[in-house]
Design a protein around this nucleic acid. Structure first.
Lengths: 341, 341
DNA sequence: TTCCACAAATCAAACGATTGAACGAGCACG
DNA sequence: CGTGCTCGTTCAATCGTTTGATTTGTGGAA
């Protein structure tokens, strides 16, 4: 692979001239620059970003740590990140924590070794982690939390306004006459997002009107089966429940099917809502009422925030962006089966 | 950030000693090595992979170019890649081509500039691209095609045995008594995988017994709607069709819903099959019969292949791996509605 | 003609890690 | 006591690019 020296030789100038010319430095005359550019083209020269990064102490690369790729939710977030990263001539390295705090921190360390200029992190929702992030904060590498955060760590953050989102769903159901609901979420993800959505629900439903059900599933492969079984076990018990608010669309769809297979009609007997607005939400029968998160926008905003911070070396106060989510009413919700009390 | 020199100073040795010690070179005595390791720990030293990469002419990073993150299919492939990459202390940079040949090649160039040691590519299924890959082949950077390939370019390849997969679905339907089918796929993806599956189907159904329908959709956001509309338009026309073979699960689900909304019963009136075995396939009502691709395995195998080739600098003949797919029979397929002719 | 200003290009020293060659100390052997 | 050997460490060059300092060359003013 041709280096700057090869170009220099061909163009009959010094290597430093080539560097300056290719970076359009005004120190170099237009004539020389053109000659250099021509030589570079002939040799199919490509800048070595390793060398440039070493010298500039910048790698033009950011690291992204998410728990996994499983859901389409993260796919869309990644799309937002990738588009933005690329539009700024950056690259990204991606790693998956698999929901394991240890792994997450090992990956962060590894990424720092690769000299990433910044990090986008969806922190693992497990308690004993604050210290590691605080250590990260001591480093000169900026990072942005995405979708979730760590309360003890005041860092940049981009996520959905989950309290508002929870409230919106709840209001929708309340307006339809529902007075007793179940909030059903993935218990292994005790993430801030899950909690905040519940908080929003509580702004509408009094605590005694919402039952919170955390479903567990160690094994991702059987997630759906467990959710399905979980819902079949839970819902029929409380016959006054007329609405189920699911923590995400996957659970929402599982709920829908589980209830239908119990002989309940949706939405006539029970209304069901999801969260995220993934493709699947519109494919069910009836299609799922859900809350649309601005997924790509979350990724894009986080990336912009990070790249700006990298560029400005700014250490201003943390910037927290909470994007509004919009309620998408489909046919899985309807007037309450039982008249309000 | 501490460099090797800082560690050297603290440990009272030369920088080169530190390097050797940390790489567990036997030239260095155990005592010194321990002292160096201790110093490194104290300073929280981290190797700078930019510098190491520059010197070693290796970046310990591979590039991955896929068309996008949209479907969970790619998510699982990425999971396989990431796990393998990480287990070998490599990293990966990911870019999305968005199905655009131009973009794809720009990204490949950019990744080469970042000195990736190898590439995993899901080539964009558009014709005028062979030359660019052939140029890539002239470079010393190995690459592996994944899921799809470019016939003109003899390169490493890992994908599903699509002919066999297509044949399996077809056999399943044929055995159930179906004699007239529709093969419905995404027309904008005229990928080798799509073609090969059709080839497999033709091993069972004579050409006049299968209608091939390519649905188009420019706009990803409306993919589902278009598939849905497309299927509603297509299927009822030919009343002797008793089975629809979808090119992927997304189309399968759309088909299912479209037919149901036309008043057809699945599988009593029409059988429907998908492809990929994504989560959604089991969530529909009835759950979708589909072909399970070994998605993670595809990613993992491709990565292993690539890393081995990088390690061995081998230029042996291209290695093409075709993984078997397994038929997952669910309830969307049943005996043919009409008796065989 | 001498000197200065200025533009254009080159020099040379980084960046941080790696590695073949060189070095010095200690030891055994003849 | 000199020679040759091993072992452990250091020297110094290198990877490819960037950039502040320096040189070279031209023209104009005094």
């Amino acid at each position: 692979m041709a280096t700057i020296k090869d170009v220099a030789k061909l163009a009959g100038v010094d290597a430093s001239t080539v560097s300056l010319a290719l970076n359009a430095n005004p120190r170099i005359s237009a004539a020389t620059r053109l000659r250099v550019e021509e030589a570079a083209r002939q040799l199919n020269y490509q800048k070595n970003y390793l060398a440039r990064g070493l010298r500039a102490r910048q790698s033009a690369t950011i690291g992204v740590v998410i728990s996994g790729w499983s859901s389409a939710f993260w796919g869309e977030i990644m799309t937002g990140i990738e588009n933005t990263v690329r539009s700024r001539d950056y690259h990204m390295m991606v790693t998956f924590s698999g929901g394991d705090v240890q792994a997450e921190h090992k990956h962060i360390e590894a990424l720092l070794g690769k000299q990433v200029d910044g990090l986008i992190i969806a922190p693992v929702p497990q308690p004993p982690h604050a210290r590691a992030y605080q250590m990260l904060q001591a480093r000169p590498v900026p990072f942005v939390f995405i979708d979730r955060y760590v309360p003890e760590v005041p860092a940049d953050l981009v996520c959905t306004d989950n309290v508002e989102a929870g409230r919106r769903v709840a209001e929708h159901l309340w307006t339809l006459g529902h007075r007793q609901a179940v909030y059903c979420h993935n218990a292994s993800e005790r993430a801030t997002s899950t909690e905040e959505r519940f908080e929003g629900i509580l702004q509408v439903f009094a605590p005694e009107r919402v039952t919170r059900v955390g479903l567990t599933s160690e094994d991702r492969a059987h997630l759906w089966d467990q959710f399905y079984a979980g819902m079949q076990a839970v819902v029929p018990f409380s016959s006054d429940v007329t609405a189920v608010i699911a923590g995400n669309d996957m659970i929402g769809v599982a709920t829908l099917r589980a209830l239908q297979d119990c002989g309940l009609r949706i939405p006539d007997d029970v209304s069901v809502t999801g969260f995220d607005d993934l493709d699947i939400a519109r494919m069910t029968n009836p299609p799922l009422t859900t809350v649309a998160q601005a997924k790509e926008e979350i990724g894009a905003t986080a990336t912009r925030l990070l790249l700006d911070r990298i560029a400005s070396r700014g250490t201003d106060a943390p910037c927290q962006v909470r994007l509004s989510a919009s309620l998408i009413v489909r046919r899985s919700t309807g007037a309450a089966a039982q008249a309000p009390l």
